[in-house]
Simulated scan of single mutants.
Amino acid sequence: MAKDIEVGPGANAPKDYQDPPPAPLIDAEELTKWSLYRAVIAEFIATLLFLYITVLTVIGYSSQTDPDKNPDDCGGVGILGIAWAFGGMIFVLVYCTAGISGGHINPAVTLGLFLAQKVSLVRAMLYMMAQCLGAICGCGLVKAFQKSYYTKYGGGANYLHDGYNKGTGLGAEIIGTFVLVYTVFSATDPKRSARDSHVPVLAPLPIGFAVFMVHLATIPITGTGINPARSLGAAVIYGKKKTWDDQWIFWGGPFIGAPIAAFYHQFILRAGAIKALGSYRSNA
Results as ranks from 00 to 15, higher is better:
D27W: 09
T47H: 05
Y52G: 00
F44K: 01
L31S: 01
E30W: 08
D19M: 09
L31A: 11
W34Q: 03
A13E: 08
L31G: 13
A11C: 07
A39C: 05
G10P: 10
I41W: 04
I41P: 03
T47Y: 00
S35M: 00
G10S: 12
Y17Q: 14
E30C: 05
I41S: 06
A46Q: 03
D19W: 11
L49I: 14
F44M: 04
P14V: 14
D16Y: 10
G10Q: 15
A39R: 04
D19H: 02
K33T: 11
Y52F: 15
K33S: 09
K33C: 03
L48Y: 02
L31W: 07
E43M: 05
L49Y: 02
E29V: 03
A39V: 05
P22N: 07
T47E: 06
D16L: 13
L31K: 10
Y37A: 08
D16N: 13
L25Y: 12
L36V: 04
P21E: 14
I26K: 04
V40D: 05
Y52C: 03
G10I: 15
S35N: 10
A11R: 14
F50M: 06
F44T: 00
V40I: 11
A23M: 12
R38G: 11
A11Q: 14
L31F: 13
R38V: 03
P21H: 09
W34D: 02
T32K: 15
K33H: 15
Q18T: 15
P24L: 10
P20V: 13
P21G: 05
F44G: 02
W34E: 03
E43N: 03
A13K: 07
A11L: 14
E29A: 06
A28M: 12
P24G: 02
F50S: 02
S35V: 01
W34L: 04
V40W: 01
N12M: 09
L31P: 06
A42Y: 08
Q18N: 11
L49T: 06
P21Q: 09
I26Q: 05
A28S: 12
F50P: 02
T32G: 11
A46P: 06
L48E: 01
Y17V: 13
A28F: 10
D27Q: 12
P21M: 11
A28K: 11
L51A: 08
L25A: 12
L51F: 03
G10R: 08
L25M: 13
A23H: 09
P22G: 09
W34A: 12
A42M: 11
N12F: 15
P20R: 07
P21Y: 15
L31M: 13
D27E: 13
L36N: 04
A23K: 04
A46W: 14
L49Q: 06
D16V: 14
I45T: 02
A23Q: 12
V40R: 14
R38H: 01
F44H: 07
P22E: 09
I45W: 00
N12L: 14
A42C: 05
A23S: 15
L48D: 00
A42L: 10
L49C: 05
K15Y: 13
K33Q: 12
D19E: 13
Y52V: 08
P21I: 05
L36S: 00
E29N: 14
Y52S: 01
F44E: 01
L36E: 02
D27M: 03
V40N: 08
L48I: 00
Y37E: 10
N12D: 15
L49D: 01
L48S: 01
I41Q: 03
D16P: 00
I45G: 00
A13I: 10
A13R: 08
